[in-house]
């Protein structure tokens, strides 16, 4: 699997996701600068976490307008898989690759903590290593991860099975107690209609080694390798 990780001014988890990809594939992904609208062909495009452009104005808003994102939109339309994590999720929603938006956490504070996620489907190139209904533990680290979409959009997402992950309690109950940010319907991650674009707030890339947060996030990368190699 050949992957590209985009780098914007202010990105800061590009190294973490590159490290996770390298751990699983044995191969360092290429790092693509935001001004580069013409990067090499890859099997997967990763939009990493961070504070692109300082998260000034709105999280992800300015990065979504960069030359590299224009190219990403084109390739996504052709079916090239795109994974947006945290700030990357914010960027891909701002770019219109996924519906809805990420608002300020309901408690108004940044939150860094392990959370539990319920995997909603194993039927995607991102989640094929998990079972539907499986509970995994990965961390979140964000101040604006409160997913919002209007009622029609939400209904469409739910009806078409576009919810990828939901926050839940350690025992897998999807309820307020497991929700770190006030997200609608406990949504932690969503797909586009063809399930080739995944955006999620949690950081599977920080849960790939036993001593450093556990290995529950590794399945996501292994699943992609299997699907895309």
């Amino acid at each position: 699997m050949k992957a590209a990780v985009l780098v914007f001014p202010g990105s800061n988890r590009e190294g973490d996701v590159a490290q996770a990809i390298e751990l699983v594939t044995g191969r360092r992904p290429s790092m693509v600068w935001h001004g580069d609208g013409d990067f090499e062909k890859v099997d997967l495009i990763v939009v990493p976490g961070g504070f692109s452009y300082g998260d000034y104005l709105r999280c992800g808003a300015m990065a979504a307008q960069s030359p590299v994102m224009a190219e990403v939109k084109k390739r996504a339309a052709q079916g090239v898989p795109v994974l947006g994590i945290c700030n990357g999720f914010q960027i891909v929603t701002e770019a219109g690759l996924l519906p809805g938006t990420l608002m300020r956490n309901s408690h108004l504070k940044f939150v860094c903590s392990d959370v539990h996620l319920k995997v909603e489907t194993s039927q995607s190139l991102f989640t094929n290593r998990y079972q539907a209904g499986q509970v995994i533990k990965v961390p979140v680290a964000h101040a604006e991860g409160n997913y919002f979409a209007d009622a029609d959009t939400l209904k469409r997402l739910e009806d078409r099975g576009q919810i990828a992950f939901r926050y839940c309690t350690p025992s897998g109950v999807v309820e307020g107690a497991g929700n770190p940010n006030g997200s609608t319907n406990n949504i932690a991650g969503i797909f586009n209609e063809t399930k080739t674009v995944l955006g999620l707030m949690p950081h599977p890339e920080n849960a790939v080694e036993p001593m450093f947060g556990g290995t529950d996030g590794k399945g996501l990368f292994e699943g992609m390798v299997e699907a895309l190699s």
Binding site: N12, R13, G15, D16, Q19, A20, K109, F110, V111, C112, S113, P139, A141, H203, E205, N206, V208, E209, M211, F212, G213
Partner: peptide, 14 residues
């Protein structure tokens, strides 16, 4: 306090 700090970024916090 420390949950408001990203203490996991870089993936090296043991």
């Amino acid at each position: 306090i420390w949950k408001q700090y990203d203490h996991l970024i870089m993936g090296n916090t043991a």
